[in-house]
Write a protein that binds this DNA or RNA. Structure first.
Lengths: 247, 247
DNA sequence: CGGTCTCTTGAGTTAAATCAAAGGCGGTGG
DNA sequence: CCACCGCCTTTGATTTAACTCAAGAGACCG
């Protein structure tokens, strides 16, 4: 808002940015859109982290391939998410489009300079990084000690919330990723994912329509089965002393 | 080195900071040391995140208690580490001293203001956050698909590196936490941790001396068993196509 | 409409969890 | 200094949730 950013011809647009405050997305809005085909990779683990990306449309999976050839998906990114922010020299993971996806990119240097110079942008970025950190923690909890059913329910609930935030109150959830993707994300096998979804369907919690979308019929039940108690207890007053063990 | 009130005059004092560069630790150095007894908690999940801490000595566990009463340890912090940086309003986890521990604290506002105003400090903090993120990713990989033995070896290796960095090349590793702590961190039960350590000892990879320290006898074997291949392949040319399954 | 790829379902196996009990370390007090 | 006590850890036996292997069903494409 001041200092170097002022030097360029930004002063004319600054008027605008006071009316319509500067946003991280705004940084990307002038960049050309690039299209990715399903399965196309955006960058690979270990690549020089030259760019920061914003997802304009679609979805990507973020993953690492470990030494024995298995794949671990550490996250999914969707419309509006940033990609490649919290790292130093090289990407720590690969990113691959799940479906047809549109992205915009900014040179890391440009991005970082812009953020450094803006009093408005810095806290926005900080908030995003915090969210990313919180998501990582939640995932650790999930992987540490949740059962297959709890994992699936947590996953579905997260996507339900995302869908609700985007498209209003709605019980249909689009899941663009494959069952194998879910398995690699949830630390399960594809068979276990499939069986668990079947079980939830049988229980009447879900209704599957096609491979990539589900209808959440009993969101409350789903939340209970997820075992989070909606971010800290609402049900029973917590199991007496300290003992219930794994799963 | 400087107090925050100092920062306003920073442009003039830059000469000084070139001689002895500003560091994050430096921010805390004027703060009084506080001592924590073993088991004493520093803050609880959900508390207002009013302070940022630096560990001057000792060790803490960072954990969450989930709805069924189980505990998930998401990390350990040691001398020189910061605590409570990457979050917004409230702490996302509890922190508890494992052994007698000394810490210094800074009001979050003071800390953030100091960092925001310093060209030197900002990248330092960014780097720390990136490391934290990378550690979280590694932990997700570990929890997603490593076997008990791989988990233990990864854990020991991490501590071996820490010890080597601190105290020169050394094969003794201090593990102040209990077996239960390790179990809660690695997503295992105490019995499995114990059995796995016994197995590694039997194999001659480790020598246990007392409960809280081990001697790493075959670090190379340990690294192989950890299954990381020291951050990307050095051994076999990676299992042909894509298939080896869980554990 | 056939082919391919993904997903589902079934049967059997296994690594880690659970349940149970004994062993050892460290601290306390006699 | 030694004996005792409590807690942490180890070890053993059994169970189980999820994995593996295998085959069949269903979705989506040209």
């Amino acid at each position: 808002m001041f200092l170097t950013s002022y030097n360029r011809e930004r002063s004319t647009t600054n008027l605008l940015s006071q009316v319509e405050p500067e946003t991280l997305s705004g940084l990307f809005s002038r960049q050309p859109v690039e299209c990715l085909q399903p399965g196309q990779s955006l960058f690979l683990e270990g690549d020089d982290a030259k760019h920061v990306f914003e997802v304009a449309e679609g979805a990507l999976r973020i993953f690492r391939i470990i030494s024995d050839g298995r794949r671990v998906i550490t996250g999914f990114v969707f419309e509006g998410d940033l990609l490649g922010v919290s790292l130093k020299g090289n990407y720590l993971y690969s990113a691959e489009a799940i479906v047809g996806t549109k992205i915009r990119r900014l040179a890391r240097r440009t991005f970082e300079a812009a953020v450094q110079e803006s009093e408005e942008l810095r806290p926005q970025l900080f908030a995003r990084v915090c969210d990313e950190m919180a998501a990582a923690q939640d995932q650790m909890v999930l992987l540490s000690c949740k059962s297959a059913e709890e994992r699936l329910c947590t996953f579905l609930l997260k996507h339900l919330r995302r869908a609700a935030a985007k498209t209003g109150v709605q019980s249909m959830v689009q899941l663009p990723m494959t069952r194998q993707d879910m398995a690699d994300y949830l630390g399960l096998t594809i068979e276990t994912v499939s069986r668990t979804i079947t079980k939830l369907t049988t229980k009447g919690v879900l209704g599957c329509v096609g491979r990539h979308s589900v209808k959440i019929i009993k969101p409350m039940t789903l939340a209970q089965l997820a075992g989070d108690n909606d971010e800290y207890g609402w049900g029973e007053p917590m199991v007496s002393a300290d003992e219930r063990r794994h799963h």
